[in-house]
Nucleic acid binder design. Structure first.
Length: 427
RNA sequence: GGAGAGGUGGCCGAGUCCGGUUGAAGGCGCUCCCCUGCUAAGGGAGUAAGGGCAUGACAGUUCUUCGUGGGUUCAAAUCCCACCCUCUCCGCCA
């Protein structure tokens, strides 16, 4: 959520920033208009309440001195004022609600460094690491959905039988490989990031805090009977972990990681990227996330990016870093670097991590604050996160990249300790 | 799911029966100052959040908030209703 006072004090730059990401400017202007009226009403209410408070003080004093008759007049006046307050405060409350719901729909302001542009075409590739797409052998250019099923590592047909299309099932060495990737990602970050195993079902409010609701309700699974939502990412519970808390500045940055299932309805994506593991409804992911002071935020952003890309490097995968432009930025983000891993069999770059800086947009919704070391008012933290490793797409790129001419797969050295020391699978 | 107890400021904890100068005693923590050669101990002062108005800044002023929402009243932490959450016991269950 954006800071209303900031919008008020500099509406033009806010409007420009929002326009850069193609947000609804009319909605933004409506917020400002309503806010103006709302504040006017608040002022009037304050005056009325002040008078009521004064009058009841008077009544109390008169009565304590036994002057009951003298109290009749202020009581009568106060009673009339109360009626007025009731009527007006009803209006004020509904105004505030409208303002909030409009505000919740407005996306974050993109960072000034964020490349301008209307869509994915304007995203900027910052760097490319590892083998070039042309350098792979024919044996690596086989898509995973062809050989992995054959090898018994992946069983999409049966997963579909259980849960429908776009659900997948790993088995045998494939399942173990999935688990190995999770363990690797956790181990590589356990030096600084506290491991957390959060709930995967959360309240509506928790989903609102990260910005996944109210705008993107269609993308998430909802259990109406208990009004719980299946998290689309570990970012959701981690961001709200310290909801309504005031942290000490000395505790920042506060780093956390979580391995969870992630659930996505992928509404509107039906028929797109549906082969194999390219786009699935449920997947495992290790998320890393930090609360930081505004001053620490940029360093942490780079730190998360480095950690996420280091794992890909260790796995011997080619990847690139993409600086997401304003028009393609996620709703809550001020700046995002996507990591895309190259899958030679699928023949394309697969987005496997979005490393984002949310400024105070999520923290304002979740109300996560810190008290500055020098004292003073609590301030909102900044939130940052990224996938340390999202299993399916990395699994896909990995099995394709490390595929041998005989159809077996060499287990990358870093994964062997998690694979029972095995060097080759499917031989 | 049943019975009981409880939800108060950064934390602990009074106040709730008998509504009024209590935004809230006391303590802890924290900040500043004093004292002590250092440390330990001691003394003093300050210290909730959010919003409106106003301001160059500091100060100021006012409103709201004692789990949440509603009600009664001139006046609610305190009375009434509903709901949520926590704890203990019982039941059920991996």
């Amino acid at each position: 959520m954006l800071d209303l006072r900031l919008l008020r004090s500099d509406p033009d730059s806010a409007a420009n920033a929002l326009a850069a990401r193609r947000a609804d400017i009319e909605q933004f202007k409506e917020v400002l208009r309503l806010d103006e009226r709302h504040r006017h009403l608040l002022r009037r209410l304050d005056e009325l309440r002040h008078e009521i408070n004064t009058l009841s003080g008077t009544v109390g004093q008169l009565r304590s001195r036994g002057l009951v008759d003298e109290a009749a007049k202020p009581i009568e006046r106060s009673r009339r004022l109360r009626a007025e307050v009731k009527a007006l405060s009803h209006n004020a409350a509904s105004q505030a609600e409208t303002i909030r719901s409009l505000l919740l729909q407005l996306p974050n302001l993109p960072a000034t460094e964020c490349p301008r542009g209307d869509g994915a075409d304007a995203n900027r590739v910052l760097k490319v690491e590892g083998s070039s797409p042309e350098s792979y052998g024919d044996h690596q250019r086989v898509p995973h959905w062809e050989f992995a099923t054959e090898k018994g590592w992946l069983d999409i047909e049966r997963a579909t039988k259980l849960s429908g299309s776009m659900f997948v099932l790993f088995r045998g060495a494939g399942a173990r490989l999935s688990r190995a990737l999770v363990l690797l990602a956790l181990d590589r970050n356990s030096d600084l990031y506290e491991e957390i195993r959060p709930p995967t079902l959360v309240h509506t409010e928790t989903m609102v805090s990260t910005g996944h609701l109210p705008k993107f309700a269609d993308d998430a699974y909802h259990l109406p009977r208990d009004d719980l939502w299946a998290i689309p990412t570990g970012e959701v519970p981690l961001t709200s972990l310290c909801k309504d808390e005031v942290l000490d500045e000395a505790d920042l940055p506060m780093r956390m990681m979580a391995h969870t299932s992630c659930f996505r309805r992928e509404a509107g994506a039906a028929g797109r990227d549906t082969r194999g593991l390219l786009r699935v409804h449920e997947f495992d992911k290790v998320e890393i996330l930090a609360y930081a002071t505004p001053a620490q935020a940029q360093d942490i952003h780079q730190e998360i990016l480095k950690r996420a890309s280091d794992v890909l490097e260790e796995l011997g995968l080619a990847y690139r870093v993409v600086d997401i432009c304003t028009g393609d930025l996620g709703n809550s983000s001020a700046r995002t670097f996507d990591l895309e891993v190259y899958a030679p069999g699928a023949g394309r770059w697969l987005e496997c991590s979005s490393v984002s800086w949310f400024s105070d947009y999520q923290a304002r919704r979740a109300n996560v604050r810190y008290r500055p070391s020098g004292g003073g008012r609590p301030r909102l933290v900044h939130t940052l996160n990224g996938s340390a490793l999202a299993v399916p797409r990395v699994w896909a790129a990995l099995t394709e990249t490390w595929r041998n001419p005989d159809g077996s797969m060499t287990v990358p050295p870093v994964l062997r300790e998690y694979m029972g020391g095995v060097e080759i699978i499917g031989g």
